[in-house]
Amino acid sequence: MKASAKKFGFWLAAAVTAACSFTATLVWAQSAANQDPVAEYRAMFGDDNPAELWLTRGKDLWTAPRGPKHVALANTCDLGMGVGVIAGAYAHLPRYFVDSGRVQDLESRLLTCMVVQQGFKQADLVANRFGDGDRKSDLEALAAYLVDASRGVPISLPLDHPQEKRAYALGEAIFYYRAGTHDFSCATCHSQPDKRIRLQRLPDLATPEGAREAYTTWPAYRVSQGEVRTMEWRLGDCFRQQRLPEMTYGSDAAIALTMFLAKNAEGGELAAPGLKR
């Protein structure tokens, strides 16, 4: 009797809680849906982000011996904090690497490790930089896993190497560089507060608030694509919409612009992989 009353009490509490949270979620989702369909999606899925699948695969790709040289990245790849150290590493990228002699973001650093340490061919890796349906990208899975290892860590880029300072200045110059048939620069859409394109909010990426909002949530699972996309994908697709030619993956312009955004987001706590439209 006592036990069943207890049980009943539990189920009652659970039901009330569920009903309340369901109602709350529904109300929130409905009001949010007017402005942001992705907010509705988030409300439906709660904490479940499909990026989990990429993360799990990324962990395997990081720890298993792979490539012609049959070595694990976990035993050979230095993301800037020592070989194999991943906790917090993404919060300090892009940075200058002595071995490659250049400033690198996460994606270009992964390319270096996979080519130099594991012996993969760069062209093969780049050809498979963006997953598409059944053909998944190892780079996107690795990025999801490695970025998750910096969740909650504030972005900190001291720019204490002259090359890092140069990369920031170059990124800023690219951010404001207007060109192409439509005269667009990054700044055309991303340098004013509280603007939107159609219904999509546009972060002001030259300010700390806007840069943090954007930068801390990439890479992200893109609902419309069914894939985890990284910052380099985001930049490349912006340039496509700017009517410019195609941005090369891992290029100096991509890394410099990433440096500009990351430094502007200084202090923001990473919350990626995020979930986006």
Binding site: L170, A173, L244, P245, A253
Partner: peptide, 27 residues
Amino acid sequence: DRNAQARAAMQSSFKAHGQAGMERLDQ
């Protein structure tokens, strides 16, 4: 040299694709 700097980096970081040729990087 801000524009020249951006343009030089973009010329080595972009490639022509479809109707978007490299001349679109010229201002």
